[in-house]
């Protein structure tokens, strides 16, 4: 076993380490579940959702190398479509986990569709222009779901925009109520479901990154012109990464929404996109384990800072700034490397 581990490449060893750590974290939390505080218990599912969000955004930001400021838009698409599907199937499928899984698949499919549609204009642009279009996309999605009404009755689903004109038959039910969002959701998300989604996300992302396509995607990130000159189809591989990222975010959205009894479109705004981006950058671009740790730590941090009461978000902001300064400032960096005795990779090269 030990020999086999040594022969593995560095990346796959790191991937296995990530799987093992996630499984360990799950088992430890399951064993401790009796002694966990109720506030922490309530955060387990959102943490899983944010972890999936962070990993999927890391695929766009770290692996594809494009800045996205509208990742919450995909989460929103996934949340609303997935919950609608789960609510619509409530009578047909009595098994809650199966309904949740179907909701996640539906959410992922619609988010992938949204990712494809927005990918067409987005991937033609570069750098900050791309970032602003994803931002615009997030805002558009927010506006649409704030004004969308979906109802269900015996004749199937009814849609209307701006005002409620779904005109439901007797016994019908309004699922999405415009700015009121979705109310009365059955909370069927569980920590186990969240854990499984995190594992699926890791499998998808690691296999994509370590495949031929993944190497093509990273080649585009490192040097687009060189990649194009050796015959890599830029649009295809960019789209592949972008749509995968969107689909995963969509299923995270469903998981997240099914943990609350009501969900509104304003929950998935620009600040949520930024929050997920913070996880990715703090965890390290392209580093999935880093994203997981950062997402979990930063979701718990405001809770852990409760003793600061009113000052906790202020402290959060200061911690964020200081961490960025400490990890990116050259003088801090050389000081740090002198302590640890490691040489900076850039200096070594």
């Amino acid at each position: 076993m030990a020999n086999k581990l040594k022969t593995l490449s560095k990346t796959s060893r790191r991937n296995y380490l990530t799987y093992v750590l996630v499984i360990l974290a799950y088992l430890v939390l399951q064993l401790l579940s009796g002694s966990l505080s109720s506030s922490l218990k309530g955060m387990l599912v959102p943490i899983c959702a944010y972890v999936v969000m962070a990993i999927s955004l890391n695929l766009t930001v770290g692996i594809l190398g494009e800045l996205s400021l509208g990742h919450a838009g995909f989460m929103s698409v996934g949340a609303f479509t997935g919950v609608t599907a789960a609510v619509a199937l409530q009578g047909v499928i009595p098994i809650a986990p199966l309904r949740l899984a179907i909701g996640m698949v539906v959410g992922a499919a619609f988010a992938a569709l949204a990712g494809f549609l927005i990918g067409i204009p987005v991937l033609r642009l570069k750098g900050d222009y791309l970032a602003i279009v994803t931002l615009a996309f997030g805002e558009i999605i927010k506006s649409i779901f704030n004004n969308l009404y979906v109802g269900m009755d015996g004749n199937g689903l009814h849609f209307s925009l701006l005002s409620d004109s779904t005109d439901l038959a007797e016994g019908g039910k309004l699922i999405i109520g415009g700015p009121m969002g979705i109310g009365g959701i059955q909370k069927i998300s569980t920590f186990t479901a969240g854990f499984l989604l995190v594992m699926i996300t890791l499998v998808v992302v690691f296999n994509l990154v370590n495949s031929r396509s993944g190497r093509a995607i990273m080649a585009i990130r490192d040097n687009r012109i060189a990649a194009e000159s050796v015959g890599v189809n830029i649009t295809k591989y960019k789209m592949m990464a972008f749509v995968t990222s969107a689909a995963l975010a969509g299923s995270a959205g469903t998981l997240f929404a099914m943990n609350y009894s009501t969900i509104v479109a304003n929950k998935f705004d620009f600040n949520t996109s930024i929050l997920v981006l913070v996880f990715v950058v703090l965890g390290g671009q392209g580093n999935m384990l880093g994203s997981i740790v950062a997402a979990a730590a930063l979701t718990i941090l405001p809770e852990a800072l409760r003793q600061f009461a009113d000052y906790r978000m202020l402290v959060y902001a200061i911690v964020l700034i200081l961490v960025m300064l400490a990890t990116n400032n050259p003088s801090f960096k050389s000081f740090w490397s002198r302590i640890t005795g490691k040489r900076d990779k850039k200096e070594a090269a």
Binding site: L67, L277, M313, L314, I318, L320, I321, M324, N328, F332
Partner: peptide, 27 residues
């Protein structure tokens, strides 16, 4: 201090400053 850092790091710092100003104003 981040003049030589990658642009994403500066972006996140700017977001941190934004949170800071909003929450300071709130207090």
């Amino acid at each position: 201090p981040l003049r030589a850092a990658p642009s994403l790091a500066v972006l996140i710092t700017a977001i941190g400053v934004s949170y800071f100003l909003q929450n300071a104003a709130l207090l």
